[in-house]
Computed example of a mutant assay.
Amino acid sequence: MSTHATPVAAGAFSDEERAAVYRAIFSRRDVRSQFTARPVGDEVLGRLLTAAHHAPSVGFMQPWNFIVVRSAAVKRQVQGAFAAANAEAAAMFSDDRRPLYSALKLEGILQAPVSLCITCDRNRGGPVVLGRTHAPEMDLYSTVCAVQNLWLAARAEGIGVGWVSIFREGDLRDILGLPEGVVPVAWLCLGYVDALYDRPELEAKGWAKRLPLEGLVFRDGWGQRG
């Protein structure tokens, strides 16, 4: 097998292509309640999974797997696991924050036509992986890159994505039958959307505001402004 790689041109995108990339980034939203009933077909789902599979990964270990869930029974089990964890989460917030937290819709598990669990196989690539020798968590970070690739591709397809993270890990593991060493990184709800908030929903509903970029950029060391 040849290991020779042929370089190809790496020119900048056209103005239209560049604008489309930034539009996907800036208009991407975490969707909870705007899903339509339009089914997500296998062809478009295949494109999204292909985009996810082309994410960067440390040592090219590609630690991800994709569990596509269309079963209503499985979704009900997962929604039940969310509800239990969400009740626990609500109790963790202060008295002044708890009413707003409880009023937020934080998942669309039963509403979205399809769900996707993206997992990380922590044993993939063997005990020693290039780039992971001193940072074992890089497999998890690589898997999150796959999530982001899929999310941006979905935005370009008119498909909304909602990341549901309020679970006990053991519940998802049991429901999906995950083997030892495979961890769930993201439960994503996917479905076509006709409208999206013009800014993040949590910002629109008063939970938080986007931090100013200028306050987050340092020069050559922590806290140094340039």
Results as ranks from 00 to 15, higher is better:
Ala90Pro: 06
Ala195Thr: 14
Ala85Pro: 11
His53Asp: 05
Ser115Pro: 15
Asp220Met: 11
Gly181Ala: 10
Leu213Pro: 02
Thr119Phe: 02
Ala91Phe: 02
Ile67Gln: 11
Gly206Leu: 10
Gly191Asn: 09
Phe35Trp: 00
Pro113Asn: 07
Gly41Ser: 13
Pro99Cys: 06
Gln111Gly: 12
Thr119Ser: 05
Leu152Tyr: 08
Gly181Arg: 08
Glu169Gln: 13
Leu178Ser: 07
Asp30Tyr: 10
Arg98Ala: 10
Ala81Asp: 07
Leu213Cys: 03
Ala146Val: 01
Leu216Gly: 10
Trp64Val: 04
Ala51Thr: 12
Asp220Ala: 13
Phe167Met: 13
Pro99Phe: 04
Asn149His: 09
Pro63Asp: 00
Val129Arg: 03
Arg28Glu: 04
Asp121Val: 00
Val68Leu: 09
Asp139Asn: 08
Glu214Arg: 13
Leu176Glu: 10
Ala154Ser: 13
Trp222Pro: 12
Cys145Met: 07
Trp151Asn: 01
Arg70Ile: 04
Ala89Val: 05
Leu104Gly: 00
Ala89Ser: 05
Gly223Phe: 13
Arg219Trp: 09
Phe66Asn: 04
Glu214Cys: 05
Leu202Gly: 08
Val182Pro: 10
Arg124Ala: 07
Asp42His: 14
Glu88Gly: 05
Arg210Pro: 05
Glu201Leu: 10
Asp15Tyr: 04
Ala103Ile: 03
Glu107Gly: 11
Met61Val: 06
Asp30Leu: 12
Ile25Arg: 04
Val185Ile: 04
Ala19Asn: 11
Val147Gly: 03
Arg18His: 10
Ala146Pro: 06
Pro56Phe: 06
Ser33Val: 02
Ala208Ser: 08
Pro63Lys: 00
Lys75Gln: 06
Phe13Val: 11
Asp139Lys: 10
Leu116Ala: 04
Phe93Gly: 04
Val147Asn: 05
Gln34Ile: 08
Glu43Ile: 15
Gly80Asp: 14
Glu157Trp: 12
Ala5Cys: 06
Val69Thr: 03
Ile118Asp: 00
Asp139Tyr: 04
Ser2Tyr: 09
Val58Gly: 01
Ala73Asp: 15
Leu202Lys: 06
Ile175Tyr: 12
Glu17Cys: 05
Cys117Ser: 12
Val144Ser: 01
Leu110Asn: 13
Ser102Gly: 06
Arg132Glu: 00
Ile166Asp: 02
Met1Ser: 09
Arg168Gly: 10
Asn86Thr: 02
Asp174Tyr: 09
Val8Arg: 15
Leu140Asp: 02
Leu188Phe: 12
Gly223Asn: 11
Pro200Gln: 03
Ile118Phe: 07
Gly206Lys: 07
Ala73Thr: 05
Val185Glu: 00
Tyr197Asn: 15
Arg28Pro: 01
Leu104Glu: 00
Asp30Arg: 07
Trp207Glu: 06
Leu49Trp: 00
